[in-house]
Each structure stands twice: as C-alpha cells, then as structure tokens.
Computed example of a mutant assay.
Amino acid sequence: MTLSEPTPPAKTTAMLKGEKWDWTAWDSFDMNMGDITLAEFIQFFESEYNLDVSMISHGVSILFSFFANKKKLAERMKMKMSEVVANVTKKELPPNQLLLFRNHC
C-alpha cells in the first residue's frame, strides 16, 4: 500500500475581459440570473466569458450539447432553464434551485 497526493487538474488559459485567466475542470461559476431561457443562458455565457458552450448538464442529464438533435435543441432554446431540466429529467427542479445555476468550466 502506498499513499500519495492527487495531482492538480490541468489548467487551460483563456482571456477574460482582457486579462489572462487560468481555469481547471474543478472551477465553477455561480450565476444568479433567474429562470432565463436556454438561449439567453448560452448567449450570456459566450458573450460574458468569451467561451463556447459545448455541453450543459444537470446531474447525469445532458440539457444541451453540440452533437444533440437539432430539432430538440431548437425547442429547448426557447424554454426556461427550469423547463429544460423538467423536460429532460422528467422531474421538476426544486424551487430553491430556480435562481442559481452552477456552471463548471
């Protein structure tokens, strides 16, 4: 038996508002934006952080991905985030989670 410390996650460098920003898979954003549509969420994230959104998940459910069925994505883009979660997971989103979405980089 051996004991060891876990290695830190790989860092990715991006430019955020003109400054160098190093982030890892362990980083996250807390965004308190209310129950906005999926399209509004993606648009805000891409314009605010200058990053492309390739996937959004809730637990084990994929709410958005670049490889998803285009017809389903078009329908989901108009829906509020709580509606997307309920539609995909077949469970209502708890009311205390409606205003806070945690996004992992």
Results as ranks from 00 to 15, higher is better:
E83S: 04
L98F: 11
P8L: 12
S47W: 05
P9M: 07
P9C: 04
T13N: 15
M79K: 00
V85H: 00
P95H: 08
A68L: 15
K20I: 15
D27P: 01
F29K: 07
C105Q: 10
K90E: 13
M15T: 12
K71C: 14
K91E: 13
I56C: 02
S82G: 04
P6K: 10
E40Y: 03
L38D: 01
M55Y: 10
N87Y: 06
E83H: 03
S28H: 11
K72M: 08
M1I: 13
T24H: 09
G18W: 04
P95M: 15
S28E: 08
C105M: 12
M79W: 03
T89Q: 04
T7M: 09
E5D: 14
K11E: 15
L16F: 08
V88E: 02
L100A: 11
E40Q: 10
T7E: 08
A74Q: 12
N69C: 13
G34H: 08
S54D: 15
D22C: 10
K91T: 11
A39Y: 00
N50I: 10
Q97Y: 06
V88W: 00
V60K: 11
D30S: 14
I42A: 02
K70W: 13
C105Y: 05
F64P: 00
K71T: 15
L73S: 03
K17T: 11
L16G: 12
N96H: 11
S65Y: 06
I42D: 01
M31G: 05
A25Y: 15
L3V: 10
T12G: 14
M15D: 13
F41Q: 00
M1L: 14
C105S: 13
E83C: 04
Y49D: 04
F41A: 03
T2W: 11
V85M: 02
E46T: 05
P6V: 14
L73K: 02
D27F: 02
G59Q: 07
K71P: 07
S65V: 04
F101Q: 01
F29D: 08
L98R: 02
F66Q: 10
F66S: 12
H58Y: 10
S47I: 14
